[in-house]
Design a protein around this nucleic acid. Structure first.
Lengths: 159, 159
DNA sequence: GGGCTGTTACTCGGATACAGCATGTCCGAGTGCTTAGGG
DNA sequence: CCCTAAGCACTCGGACATGCTGTATCCGAGTAACAGCCC
């Protein structure tokens, strides 16, 4: 799985923690926060913008903001933004090749059983991710480390 | 996702359909059945053998057999055999880099909230796949296309 | 002093290289069948 | 006719090329702030 998913989730949380005054945060600052290569992070951020999770304001004092509150962003949204909407398992219909080619008994419409099984698994995955909002994740993180938001804002002010 | 997963599942079903007399089936025959490149298919088959799903018998008249009945092989087994046992999402702990580095308040033991959320999703995926045996998949395939096993064996005898 | 305009510095955005892994291929080791020869 | 042994054809198994997607980078377009100048 693309590691940009981890970046995207953490960035969204950080944008929430830092963005209480609705000031956009630049790629440079975000990258410094996590010691990530700024240009590549910028690329991932553009994916978030295209997916409608974040908004970008160009120009000086520009940067990124969350497009909507954390309660309305699910983990599935972040994954779909980075990885793309296509399912991970792609059925190539090998059952039709070779021996199964001339099976013209209406099997064209019947979905492949293997593909169906994989799709059920992937559906469970998507559902589990869609049930978790970033607000839940933030609450869990702050429960694990109280005062985390304050600490991060302090670091942000120092640098 | 590796397309070998699709191959592996179909191959296991085919080994069951063709292997009623417990005769091993060679890579050449399996590859011809699905019009797949034989050497590469052989590579995937070795993964199934290493995972204990299939057994190989070398020498003339050699080939592959299922190591256990379809009822005891789950879709998760096949995926793990091909893709490997590592989880798809790898947490790189970027929360510790930069601003979060000196958070020595025992947070070392607390798992990353983002990672936990992703892990819950992946667990749902693994569980859903583990609940489906290849016997279930075979039953679904035969329900969709009655007489499928007979048809495949007939093709196997002709060629 | 207030307003306007040109400059400047900073930011996003897409176009451009590099690398690691999935994909695809090849040849050698090993095994069982076949067949020819001898008893 | 039966047994034995050598040859052979076929198969798996791991080592070797190739292409593509993910990773990483750079430079240009655009915008807001700022400073200087004119009224």
């Amino acid at each position: 799985m693309n590691e940009g998913v981890e970046w995207g989730a953490h960035i969204c949380l950080l944008l929430d923690w830092l963005g209480e005054d609705r000031q956009p945060v630049s790629t440079t600052r975000l990258a410094a926060h996590f010691e990530l290569p700024p240009p590549y992070l910028n690329k991932q951020l553009q994916s978030l913008v295209r997916a409608g999770i974040a908004t970008s304001t160009p120009g000086a004092r520009g940067g990124f903001r969350l497009a909507r509150p954390l309660e309305k962003i699910t983990m599935m949204d972040v994954v779909a933004a980075i990885e793309g909407p296509e399912p991970a398992f792609q059925c190539t219909e090998i059952r039709r090749r070779g021996a199964g080619r001339d099976s013209a008994d209406g099997a064209s419409d019947v979905p492949c059983a293997v593909s169906s099984a994989m799709r059920r698994g992937e559906l469970a995955w998507r559902r589990a991710l869609a049930e978790q909002t970033l607000a839940d994740v933030k609450a869990e993180a702050e429960a694990n480390a109280p005062g985390l938001g304050t600490k991060l804002r302090a670091w942000h002010d120092r640098n």
